[in-house]
Simulated scan of single mutants.
Amino acid sequence: MTEALEAQVNDDSDEYEELEEYDAPPPRSLGWILVVGGVLSFIASFILSAERVEMLKDPNYMPTCSINDVLKCSTVMGSSQGELFGFPNPFIGLAAFPIVILSGALALSSARVPSWFWRWLLVGSTYGIVLVGWLIFQSLYEIRALCPYCMVVWACVIPIFWRTLGFTLADGHFGPNVAAAGISRFLGRFWWLLTLISYAAVTTMVLIAFRYAFF
């Protein structure tokens, strides 16, 4: 009898631990940011991929997003930075952004998703923001040209990163101690402010780098 009770308690404990891996449904703001940002970024990546294929087939092909000496996709895509891993950077977006869209759909559906999923999403979005930051620097100070479709991806990855970071930290996906920290609560509440600051910083950098074209 005692052994049966202990076995039942252990079963209940295992079930409880399994359920603990699933937290409350994410906020809808996260879902919308992931879905909208993911869709726009995927479209931009798809167009850039198609344009890059045309450039490979015809070296004289001029992409539709090459507008002037500043907004010139051909210069950006033809640079070594445009193929960071040995293939066109937009191909990364074709693989990555469907996962972002799926994550947003799960958030909007209030599905019970394990914490490890959101932690890995944060890893991916961190990789994305680091890559975007590096590409911004390269575009402004090395390539000296801007790609309009790339800028769409920049504009989407920034809020995706800040919202995902704030959510995963503040909602306990790294544990209650992390969630209780002041910085986690700040990021969870003011992710939008950090997004606006990031936009302002990038805009200022663009205006300074290409001041001859804007002023």
Rank of each mutant, 00 (worst) to 15 (best):
M77N: 06
L71S: 04
G82N: 09
V76C: 05
S80Q: 11
D69N: 12
V70Y: 00
T64D: 13
T75A: 03
Y61K: 06
V76Q: 02
V70F: 01
S74K: 04
K72S: 03
N68H: 00
Y61I: 12
D69V: 14
R52L: 08
S80D: 12
E54T: 07
T64K: 08
S79A: 11
R52I: 06
K72P: 01
Q81F: 15
P59F: 07
D69R: 04
N60V: 14
V53Y: 12
L56S: 09
L71R: 02
S74N: 13
A50K: 03
N68D: 07
D58Y: 13
T75V: 12
A50G: 12
N68E: 02
S74Q: 15
P59V: 10
N60A: 15
S80F: 11
K72G: 03
M62F: 13
N68C: 01
S79Y: 10
C73Y: 02
N60K: 13
S80W: 15
S66F: 02
S80G: 08
I67C: 01
D58T: 09
N68K: 00
K57M: 14
V70M: 00
T75P: 00
N60W: 12
C65I: 09
V53M: 15
M55N: 04
V76S: 06
Y61G: 11
D69H: 04
D69P: 08
G78Y: 02
S66L: 04
A50C: 06
V70N: 00
G78E: 11
M77H: 07
P63A: 09
G82P: 08
Y61R: 08
E83C: 14
K57T: 07
Y61E: 12
L71W: 08
V76A: 11
C73E: 05
G78F: 10
S79M: 13
E83Q: 14
E51V: 08
A50V: 06
S66R: 00
M77S: 07
G78K: 03
N68R: 00
L56H: 06
E54G: 09
Q81A: 10
M62E: 14
Q81L: 13
M55V: 02
P63R: 06
K72T: 03
L56D: 13
E54M: 05
V53H: 09
M62C: 05
T75I: 07
V76F: 05
Y61T: 07
C73T: 04
N68F: 05
S80P: 05
R52F: 09
A50Q: 10
P63F: 11
K57N: 11
N68W: 01
T75S: 02
V53E: 13
K72R: 11
D69W: 12
E54I: 06
E54S: 15
M62T: 15
G82T: 05
E51Y: 06
N60M: 15
M62V: 14
R52N: 10
S66N: 05
N60G: 10
M77G: 06
E51P: 01
G78D: 04
M55L: 13
T75C: 01
K57R: 12
Q81I: 15
L56K: 14
R52V: 12
K57F: 15
I67S: 01
G82D: 08
S66W: 01
M55I: 12
P59G: 10
K57P: 08
C65G: 03
